[in-house]
Design a binder for these strands. Sequence first.
DNA 1: TGCACGATTTGATCTGAGTCAAAATCCATT
DNA 2: AATGGATTTTGACTCAGATCAAATCGTGCA
Lengths: 250, 250
Amino acid sequence: MSNDFDPSLAPRGSSGGSGEPAVCAACAVRNSSLCGALSSDEINELNKLSRRKSLDPGQTYVFEGDKALDFANVVQGVAKLTRGAEDGRLQIVGLLFPSDFIGGSMALGHGSDRKAEEPYTIEAVSPLELCIFPRAGFEKLLMRFPALEHKLLDRTLTELQVAREWMVLLGRKTAQERVATFILHVAEKMRNHGCHSSLGFDLPLGRGDIADHIGLTIETVSRQITQLKRKGIIDMQGARHVRSYDLDAL
Amino acid sequence: MSNDFDPSLAPRGSSGGSGEPAVCAACAVRNSSLCGALSSDEINELNKLSRRKSLDPGQTYVFEGDKALDFANVVQGVAKLTRGAEDGRLQIVGLLFPSDFIGGSMALGHGSDRKAEEPYTIEAVSPLELCIFPRAGFEKLLMRFPALEHKLLDRTLTELQVAREWMVLLGRKTAQERVATFILHVAEKMRNHGCHSSLGFDLPLGRGDIADHIGLTIETVSRQITQLKRKGIIDMQGARHVRSYDLDAL
DNA sequence: TGCACGATTTGATCTGAGTCAAAATCCATT
DNA sequence: AATGGATTTTGACTCAGATCAAATCGTGCA
């Protein structure tokens, strides 16, 4: 039965079902996620609340405008945070990688003036595994363990900086620079998550999603990537796998 | 001597000098700012730390890349948060209005992985008055008064949402929509700060700054405003004063 | 092995916003 | 009221990236 705790063997990509109890002690993001702020005693409390949920690529976890859902950690996989206008126009405002936290965007309980409504659609991009915490219970823990709130603030500040960095990209960079920046951004994320071997790494997004993230069209993204390849700045195998890249593709 | 406490008589726009002690009890943003989280006992402690500082339009408070400065509240006036590339390109990533907090972007003391370096340039746009708190002292208060950190988290989450909203604007909206959104955005801010009488309100930014905020050029901003006037969607007096606008300029 | 569908690439053309340049306004100061 | 510099507006032209369309490339599947 020891395998029960091995996250690599956890059921995944099945059907989006939820409900398997989480086991924090064996969690892949035990320390890198928000939970890293908790002692092992404290995390036991959290453990009682949490549930795992798997989503297949393309499946949506929440829709923009839904009533505010629960909190969650990304345990495995990549998700996109999306905001859309009535017509087809879509903007990806953020990517979620393992150990990222979901739910900060919603109103926190205590007298916030933000509405208790999801501002973004969250959709799995690769097979996704979440660790979900019921809203009320998690908020209570947040009150009791200041270190947890502390870490949440820290993460939120980092995300704010990332978002503003992206504003510079969207407002002032050329198509070529946007694609280059995007690739560097992903490369770093992949390195941090150990998905960046000497053979390179895979882009988690297709051309369309990349376009929606950096404010271009599919065709322009494709053309810019082709150019980067021609110039020898990146070397790819197939459309998704980056074999190597020149760090001065900045 | 009773006038000493009247903020409307406080020295302003003088020369960017700093040093007058603050008097929280008479502060214009006592309740609307972060300080609203503090009781009158608690705020007395903060009072001991705080200093006022005035800046003239165009003066810079901090430069991108400086060592992390102190924290501050905006008491009066408007400032812009700017991020620049080597060449001339500039992006305004945020505007600061009265009661907004400065300093969240920097690393907080406790084991943050953000660098202790100012990520943005902060420059006064209209005569600006700040209430400054020394870094170390304020961080101590932050530890002692959870309500303070709580409110800071709440504000940071709101700013994150604003930043992401702006990502949609920069990534997916047309020039016309950008200008319209900007005007609505300012109109609401002005309304919240009581600077929006029945005679309308003033745009705090010139054409160049508007352009840097919404990712266009000066000329395009000017042309779009001209068009909005022609269409009768807005009515202006001079380049800065908006007399009225059609809420469905969305 | 070969078919079929979605994703990507490439091509041709169009257009919204940028660039360069000059005229018109606005203000602050005298 | 007149002067001079900065800001805004307008005009003519260009170009990066969008749009429309078609050809490839992959990959799963029978």
